[in-house]
Design a binder for these strands. Sequence first.
RNA 1: CGGGGCGUAGCGCAGCCUGGUAGCGCAUCUGCUUUGGGAGCAGAGGGUCGCAGGUUCAAAUCCUGCCGCCCCGACCA
Length: 439
Amino acid sequence: MRLSRYFMPTLRDAPSDAQIVSHQLMLRSGLIRQEAAGIYAWLPIGLKVLKKIEQVVREEMNRAGAVEVLMPTLQLADLWRESGRYDDYGDEMLRIKDRHDRDLLYGPTAEEVIVDIFRSYVKSYKDLPKNLYNIQWKFRDERRPRFGVMRGREFLMKDAYSFDIDETAARRAYNRMFLAYLNIYARLGLKAIPVRADTGPIGGDLSHEFIILAETGESEVFAHRDLVEMGAPGPDIDWDGDLQPLVEQRTRLYAASDEMHDAARFEVEAPEDKRMTARGIEVGHIFYFGDKYSKPMKAMITGPDGVDRPAQMGSYGVGVSRLVGGIIEASHDEAGIIWPDSVAPFGVAVVNLRVGAADVDAVADQAYRALDAAGLDPLLDDTDQRPGAKFTNLDLVGIPWQLIVGPKGVAEGVVEIKRRATGERQTLPLEAALKAIAG
RNA sequence: CGGGGCGUAGCGCAGCCUGGUAGCGCAUCUGCUUUGGGAGCAGAGGGUCGCAGGUUCAAAUCCUGCCGCCCCGACCA
């Protein structure tokens, strides 16, 4: 992409509405534009990042055996009357009427719709297990939207729903999601901690929130240090096998957010040098809720004994749009965003420092074509701004590499490369520079 | 939903107290000079001062109502 033809409106000053760093950086680097409280338009590079995160989530869900669908944003109120939630949900639900005066709503979540789909096709235990997910915009009319996309009213969420014949099988489904989530966050360059979450009236221990570590995070986490260092299980586990040991390895170590924290237990379960207190952002939540929806909505499964039982369900959410802000909170410096390679809007920026000088243009072009051919999705800065402005902007936007082509270097047959994350620079011949970036 | 704050050019702000020609920086446009970390000079354009009503000879400024946005708290991907 040529920057001169692109749309990447950066701002020198952050709009005063934005208070937290990720929100300021998202506005300044032209990722989003606010249209109303908690409602944002996604501009080109913001959209690219969002799509990349979405794709990571999709790949890991698929790997864990989930199957993608796409449910509508608008849902029928009647389905919610069946589950009993229509009246309970309150003002957070955006209610709409169509021209026939029929009650609709903009979905804040999709349990009702997925149960409606599931029940109309699946009747036998032989068709289980099933895990269906979608990545779709949700709307919750929050009392107080804030923190930019971290707490918007309209947000992109991956929500998965598992269906099983009994609780034992449902636990297996839960375990798959538990481990898949750790892999997702690891691929996004994040350190995530699964913490036990309140299960509400259902009870049991099958609910976890995933909190990514960021100094500016909104909630406090207390965890055994080994849990953080243990990291993700990786993609090459046997997803159909017994995952319980891998999950237990991680759930037996102490981890709690402030509302569930028990200081006395923390001291017993973690030796002093292993006790970690940090700030974080909740970016995922998984739980098992049995027949809470399948029972009232009559999603019945016939078992091997010929008896019908409501499907045992779980649901699993990842805040995709929230992760954009979360990654920035976890990874930035004074100059701007530092994207992990896996989600960066462009892999590398080719910086032409003297647009119009034939020899410089030629080298920049050559570098751009080579990086494009190598699949690095390069951005060619062919604008007529001064060098300082280009560097400042590219640092702000956080493109992982800069390949800098200037008249001095070209005269000597070299270019410069700079790694955004570390600031490390190297001056070397073009071929070597391309190799260093393309790996 | 309780408490607090703010709406003046695309962005950041001053002016309001004490009513009297709407300003500054950045950005934008034109020209010249510049060009390795947000250039310099000269010129230009851009505003129903959130909206409505009121007071007044006169309202960005004072009064009333409404709307929008932000922050703190209780709730959430």
